[in-house]
Design a protein around this nucleic acid. Structure first.
Lengths: 337, 337
DNA sequence: GCTCCGACTGTGACCGGTCACAGTTCTATC
DNA sequence: GATAGAACTGTGACCGGTCACAGTCGGAGC
């Protein structure tokens, strides 16, 4: 009567029995169907349908050694990353790219040292095939651990201190910053301030370098302040700049969030954007276009970045040597500059 | 010589050999150490250190039937959810709550029907112990599938059409909406418009109900427009409202993002917030406080929501009957209303 | 001195797949 | 008609853990 209701999940043996073939044949059907007779193929497919069979992922992973999943590993102090809409774009892109390959994404957050240890442990437990490492600070020991453990890894952005040791997907930070700076100079601005990112991150260091290079003789170190990519830090940096100097005519922030913070700070002291001071951001986060006024910024190709990270990582897992990909950015001129 | 360099990962047998005990004893040490002599305990711990052993998660899951991970399942059309900073809060909270329990979070995105089928397949493959279901539209068949499959599930927000069939963590939408409406009325506003969410979502339906109930005789159906929670839809709804009527003195949007869109639309036609029209949101997303001007809104306790979802789900997995938790919201008065 | 019991340990079966290998057919070729 | 080989199928070992069960050992109690 009720023996059908409380049955455990059907296994490959149940399917084999139902189809009147052996486990081996069922396994072959599931994995592509090479060397299977049409009759057996049909019988197995029918049996799978009838039993409602789904393969047990753990058993498969145990036998094959593959996990068929990747880790999306966040190492940034968390409030920043989760406030940053760009991370969501990256996450979505990666999840989609993996779904297309019937793989899945495990989210790992390594904020505190304790979590960090857990992560290393988790990753080396073979739970995932590789790691998509997001935004690592230079001092972060996690990348070194991953490399030492031989864990296939792809970094988003050039990992300072580990260049050439690991696969990387990045944009040309220096050239992008030069492009924006050139644009601001072209608009007639000369007293251009920069709100840079932390110097131990590639986006902090190289955007600053590009800015300085392009500014040339107009570069004034007194016009550089540093933030942490977050909105409040942008506002604070802008305030510091305003306290120090009064002739700034443009501000280049190393993130859209900091640009938004800067705009808020400017508004608070009665300065209009772009009439009094032009403001430019970096990233083209989701909100940049909806910002009031819409933000002029550098677009990072987020969807391509996540796509490339995934395919690069899969290559590395398959045994390819590490490799670096640089993707193009583009200047998006809206209304703030 | 080099036999140590290319060794495969150490297994529990290697540890047992190194410690001079049996697999069983090692297993006992790993799982809490009951009925293990101090000497054996020490020897095993030392052997684990020496060999660099980490347990294979797949093998353990296969043997125990537990996956020690939960799925974070998104079913909303994707552009909305990823633009919505609240989802990131939820995600972070869930990841943290799980990390504390040495469990992990698998991100599943079920946007297209194809992805939906994959998800059902994946979940029933036993890869995860349960599902944290985020924001399901009424017509979404996924919840029905999960329930039919006996998959432990917890919903975020009351699942329309499935009330009482599944564990739920939600806020009192109606009362929250009434609170905000009461506040706006208390400020002297009478021609209050609402930008509601989709009627097939709990936040769309119940916030509208609360608004209407509290408005009482002042309620005017002509002052209700619908959006999709996204910023642009808020702007569009506001524009429609302005085209239709000219005496609106306040707007209550069912999400902060729509409130931000509405503020943009108001600005575009030269109306000031809050001087000309007050605007209120819902959610207290990360950006609400940094909005210009800072947004008056209803705070949802995101961290508690994710915490409760996780612990509720773990209860369900452990065999507890389904249960619903309602968490309190609070009115956050800033500057827009 | 024998029994009993608690503390501890080892063993074999099992979880649900995959894979290598050994058959078994059946057809084509000489 | 024998033989090779391609096409297909079944079997047992194995992946790396857990768990139930059967021992072993030492000391307390009678």
């Amino acid at each position: 009567m009720e023996e059908t209701t409380l049955r455990r999940k059907p296994t490959i043996r149940d399917v084999a029995a139902a189809a009147g073939v052996s486990r081996g044949t069922v396994s072959r059907v599931i994995n592509g169907g090479r060397w299977v007779s049409p009759a057996a193929q049909l019988a197995v497919e029918e049996a799978i349908r009838a039993t409602g069979y789904t393969a047990n992922h753990h058993a498969r992973s145990l036998a094959t050694g593959r996990a068929d999943s990747l880790a999306f590993l966040l190492t940034e102090p968390q409030h920043l990353l989760f406030a940053d809409p760009t991370f969501a774009l990256l996450l979505r892109g990666a999840a989609e790219a993996l779904a297309q390959r019937s793989m899945t994404l495990v989210l790992l957050v390594a904020g505190t040292p304790g979590e960090r240890a857990n992560v290393a442990h988790y990753v080396s437990a073979g739970h995932v095939d590789g790691v998509l490492l997001i935004s690592s600070h230079e001092s972060d020991p996690l990348l070194a651990d991953l490399l030492a453990g031989g864990i296939p890894t792809v970094c988003c952005g050039i990992p300072l201190g580990h260049q050439g040791e690991v696969s990387t997907v990045s944009v040309d930070e220096i050239e992008s910053a030069r492009t924006m700076t050139r644009y601001l100079l072209g608009q007639g601005h000369r007293r251009i301030a920069m709100i840079a990112g932390p110097n131990d991150t590639p986006g902090g260091r190289f955007r600053r370098v590009g800015f300085q290079e392009e500014m040339g003789e107009h570069f004034d170190p007194a016009l550089v302040e540093e933030g942490d990519y977050g909105q409040e830090s942008g506002a604070a940096a802008m305030t510091r700049l305003l306290e120090r100097t009064s002739d700034i005519d443009a501000v280049f922030a190393a993130s859209d969030l900091m640009a938004a913070g800067a705009i808020g700070a400017l508004r608070k002291v009665g300065l209009r954007v772009p009439e009094d001071i032009a403001v430019a951001g970096f990233d083209d986060s989701g909100f940049a276009a909806n910002q009031e006024p819409p933000l002029t910024t550098i677009r990072q190709p987020w969807d391509r970045i996540s796509d490339e990270m995934v395919s690069l990582l899969l290559d590395v897992i398959a045994g390819a040597p590490h490799r670096s990909v640089t993707l193009p950015t583009s200047l998006v001129v809206r209304e703030t500059a």
